[in-house]
Computed example of a mutant assay.
Amino acid sequence: MRDDGLDRAIDAAGGIAQLARKIGISQPSVSNWSRVPAQRVVAVEAATGVSRTDLRPDLYSEQAVAAEPLDPIDAARAQEYALLATLLSAPPSKRLLEQLAALTGDATPLGRAHADLARAASDTVAAKIEREYFDLFVGLGRGELLPYASYYLTGFLNERPLSRLRADLTALGIERVANSSEPEDNAAILCEVMAGLAGGSFEASPEAQRAFFEKHVSSWMGRLFADMESAENARFYRAVGALGRALLEIETEAFTFAN
């Protein structure tokens, strides 16, 4: 039996098939949900407009987070990772594009990346980005880019980096979405995991976060973002790549300093 939050998301999307398409996963996967999995909350919220507090009040309600206030820096980190997870998991909706176009920047590398993303969002429409996303990440047979750790680290899909990631996710208590065919080393899923770690949805010490970041994110994702910036089919996603690369550089420096 589905919970109220998931039912609202399905209704807002126009049905199970439409919700699955919007967040880039198979229809049977969504059909088997009884509630929105933690690692899909951000994508479903962006695709449907149903807030995360309604989708998973056990994770995002005031009562759920009141026990220990979140550090503002960690909240900002979680927000940046969640944005990347949303943009990598599916093309942005018209509503999200409008929100992105309203972003403001500053003189910092991340601020400049925000300003560039705002300009890119204001200069395009959702239909064009849907085609761009398809050409980049889906394609006829395969897209221009393969956003998987195994591919970037070994040249093949579903290799040792994926098995190591699964072991570490299990150790952190993060479960695979039931009946999902998408490998966990997809960049969107890893950004969603980092958002959960930074935001406190997944419990992990700063040392565990740093180890996960270095082993499963910074070891390859910077190259993916650089490839997005130079990809033949990229227009809007060049700005997404620049944002991702800027965030990883900041995270790498911060973890190194903390260590």
Rank of each mutant, 00 (worst) to 15 (best):
E80G: 06
R164E: 12
A126P: 04
N186S: 12
D168N: 11
A121L: 08
R2K: 15
L96Q: 12
R112T: 14
E68F: 08
V125W: 10
Y60V: 08
A195D: 06
A126T: 14
A43N: 08
Y152T: 01
D58F: 11
D123R: 14
R245V: 03
Y133P: 07
M221I: 05
L117I: 10
I16C: 10
G49W: 01
A149T: 04
R164Q: 11
Q39E: 11
V44P: 00
G155D: 00
V138P: 00
A9L: 11
I129P: 07
Y133M: 09
L243R: 13
I129A: 09
A9G: 11
A102K: 11
L248M: 14
D168K: 13
A75L: 08
L100W: 01
R223C: 00
A211P: 01
S122D: 15
E159V: 02
K94H: 14
A20R: 06
L224V: 07
E207V: 07
A239C: 08
W220G: 01
I250T: 13
R176Q: 12
S122V: 07
Q63S: 15
L224T: 00
A17F: 10
G155T: 03
G111R: 05
D71H: 10
A242G: 15
P72R: 05
I73N: 08
S180A: 14
L6I: 12
T108W: 01
L100D: 04
R21H: 14
P92Y: 12
D227M: 00
Y60Q: 05
Q99P: 03
A9T: 11
A187G: 02
G196T: 02
L103R: 08
R245K: 12
N233S: 14
N158C: 09
A67N: 09
I129Q: 08
A226V: 07
A127Y: 09
W33P: 00
E229W: 05
I16H: 06
A107S: 10
Y152I: 00
G139P: 01
V50L: 03
A204F: 04
S93P: 10
R40V: 10
R40E: 13
R56Q: 02
V50I: 15
Y151L: 07
E144F: 00
A64G: 01
L70P: 00
A13F: 01
G111N: 05
G199P: 08
V138G: 03
A246F: 06
R160N: 00
Q209K: 13
A171M: 08
H216K: 10
G141Q: 02
K215N: 15
V240E: 04
A66C: 15
E214V: 11
L172D: 04
G200V: 04
F202L: 00
R21C: 07
A90F: 03
L243V: 12
F212L: 09
L84M: 09
R56K: 02
A13Q: 06
R238T: 12
E45T: 15
E159D: 06
W33Q: 05
E253S: 10
A64T: 02
G196D: 07
A82M: 04
V125S: 13
A242E: 11
Q99C: 13
Y148E: 04
I23E: 02
D185H: 01
S122H: 11
R35V: 09
D74N: 15
L172A: 04
I23G: 01
A82E: 11
S201W: 14
Q79I: 03
A17I: 10
A101E: 06
A234W: 03
L87W: 12
A121V: 07
S201Y: 09
A66G: 07
K94E: 15
F255N: 13
D54K: 06
A47F: 02
G222F: 03
